[in-house]
């Protein structure tokens, strides 16, 4: 564990709290992609299946439980509690285009051809692109509530912080995980456009609006 990794994980936690806070205070899941949230549940369940056979640490254990539980809770909020506030007509990204390639890639590029290992790899590839339905929705509507942009910024920061974490681990522990790194770089790259608008508009006190 190093500082980058810890800050990354805390940023990830923060993003989830921000999202739940947004849904509960506005009593609405407007602007949030159900598809992206459903993909995150898939990612966490596929990756953290190792809860049953691999012990890493208490920290690791509780974080995994939290990510699975909170992501399922968010789906519940969107699907049942605040269902009328979700507009499926603007959340139309075809998730098959993400899940399909993630399955195929994980079958080809993995460390070991074993069921749980392939699930782990699949979860890494899927997480890399899971934000796309959300970004697509943002692009379509061209604007976002400020709180939603804070959620995305925290989520993007989590991914960005994992990069110095890998560099640090390379030098201190001699650990290199090419699958996680390549997928992580792709994932972080997807946030660049968003970050540009976030820093130049939202943090200057303006509303998040994309040029028409």
């Amino acid at each position: 564990m190093n500082l980058f990794r810890l800050l990354g994980d805390l940023s990830h936690l923060a993003s989830i709290f921000i999202l739940i806070h947004k849904i509960q205070t506005t009593r609405s899941c407007r602007g949030i992609s159900f598809q992206t949230q459903a993909l995150y549940v898939t990612v966490f369940v596929a990756r953290y299946i190792d809860l049953f056979f691999r012990w890493i640490s208490l920290y690791n254990f509780f974080m995994k439980i939290f990510f699975i539980a909170s992501s399922v809770y968010i789906l519940y909020l969107m699907k049942y509690r605040y269902r009328p506030t979700h507009d499926p007509s603007i959340d139309t990204f075809k998730v098959e285009y993400l899940v399909g390639p993630a399955v195929v890639l994980s079958l080809i590029f993995n460390y070991k051809f074993e069921f749980t290992e392939i699930l782990w790899t699949f979860s890494i590839y899927l997480e890399a692109v899971a934000i796309l339905p959300q970004l697509f929705m943002l692009q379509r509507t061209g604007e976002a509530e400020t709180i939603t942009t804070h959620y995305l910024a925290a989520l993007g920061a989590y991914r960005a912080l994992y990069i110095p974490n890998w560099i640090y681990r390379y030098f201190t522990e001699d650990v290199v995980d090419p699958i996680a790194i390549v997928a992580g770089l792709v994932q972080t790259g997807l946030y660049l456009d968003f970050f540009y608008v976030y820093f130049t508009k939202v943090l200057q006190g303006q509303k998040f609006e994309l040029p028409a």
Binding site: R5, D9, H12, R47, D50, R54, I56, S57, N60, M63, K64, F67, Y111, K112, E117, W120, Y162, N165, R169, E173, V175, V176, D177, P178, A180
Partner: peptide, 10 residues
């Protein structure tokens, strides 16, 4: 190299 880190990241 590879999964040497034992997938200890979240």
């Amino acid at each position: 190299y590879g999964s040497a880190n034992g997938h200890d990241e979240l």
